[in-house]
């Protein structure tokens, strides 16, 4: 009885995992097939193990450049979010006043506004500050998108963090500002991991704004480069999949590195507060 239950449990969990791995299998299957075999024919579930798609995808769509662009924008945006949102969360959680309270409420309401609805005025703004096709403007924009939810997480986490950790530093001669960066900031690691995963992925995968503000060929990010295989070259499945796998690899690796703290960060930042 106990054995069948254990078996049932593992079968269920294995089923859940397999279901989640379908797209990864499909992408690898396509990426490793010869161009003549885009379709699934016969019952062979094994691909051809043809690695030339990766080289061709890399060459034709400037994937290398796209990866560099995506890395610059994602890392820049994530660092900016961590710095701005953690210090704002600290001010809101520790030094509550009317101003901080209304800022927090405003951010909560703005969390409900999808970024797409401000595209037109944003385009005018980006044009007037000379930000079209630049890394720096895209970094600022992506960081701004991530501010509300990240402040929400940091403020929630800092509220339940004991005040004593800063107080001892203040007694030792720190100001509240320096004690945050020297002491409190290091306790925020779980939330920072959650922010890196959630916002980092959102930036890495951003398409809706990149398509407007990074139109230059040399400024393309990974989602733009991958979608090119669909639009320009007429659905080249093998190359599309190879490009997608190239673009996915850094995201998966980063996720696996930070996921250890992920649940902890969400628990402390969002659920308890």
């Amino acid at each position: 009885m106990k054995n069948t239950r254990t078996f049932g449990k593992y079968a269920l969990v294995a089923g859940m995992s397999l279901l989640s791995l379908i797209p990864f299998y499909i992408l690898l299957y396509l990426a490793l097939n010869k161009p003549s075999r885009t379709l699934f024919n016969g019952l062979s579930l094994l691909p051809d193990f043809n690695f030339s798609n990766f080289l061709e995808a890399w060459a034709t769509s400037k994937m290398g450049l796209a990866t560099v662009n995506s890395l610059i924008i994602t890392i820049g945006g994530a660092i900016l979010i961590i710095l701005a949102a953690s210090s704002a969360g600290y001010a809101i959680a520790r030094y509550s006043n009317k101003f901080h309270q209304s800022v927090f409420n405003l951010l909560l309401i703005c969390m409900m506004i999808p970024a797409i609805i401000i595209t037109v005025p944003l385009y005018t703004l980006m044009k007037s500050i000379g930000g079209i096709n630049t890394h720096w403007a895209m970094i600022l924009l992506m960081a701004s998108n991530g501010i509300p939810f990240s402040v929400f997480l940091y403020a929630g986490f800092i509220k339940v963090l004991p005040r004593e950790i800063e107080e001892s530093a203040i007694i030792d001669g720190c100001t509240p500002f320096t004690s945050f960066w020297r002491v409190t900031f290091h306790f925020l690691r779980p939330v920072t991991a959650a922010v890196v995963i959630l916002q980092g992925l959102a930036i890495w995968n951003n398409y809706g704004q990149a398509v407007f503000f990074l139109q230059g060929q040399d400024m393309r990010t990974i989602p733009l480069a991958v979608s090119m295989f669909f639009q320009q070259y007429g659905a080249q499945w093998n190359l599309m999949a190879a490009a997608a796998v190239i673009g996915l690899a850094p995201a998966v690796v980063a996720f696996l590195i930070f996921q250890k703290y992920f649940v902890k960060g969400i628990t402390a930042g969002a659920v308890k507060g």
């Binding site: 900016l80 710095l83 701005a84 949102a85 210090s87 704002a88 600290y90 001010a91 809101i92 520790r94 030094y95 901080h100 800022v103 951010l107 703005c110 506004i113 401000i118 944003l122 703004l125 600022l140 924009l141 960081a143 701004s144 998108n145 501010i147 509300p148 402040v151 100001t175 509240p176 500002f177 945050f180």
Partner: peptide, 16 residues
């Protein structure tokens, strides 16, 4: 510390 929310506010104010 009273101004620590300012960078986030400026960024979000300008771009949103």
């Amino acid at each position: 510390h009273l101004f620590m929310a300012l960078p986030a506010i400026l960024l979000f104010g300008l771009f949103f």
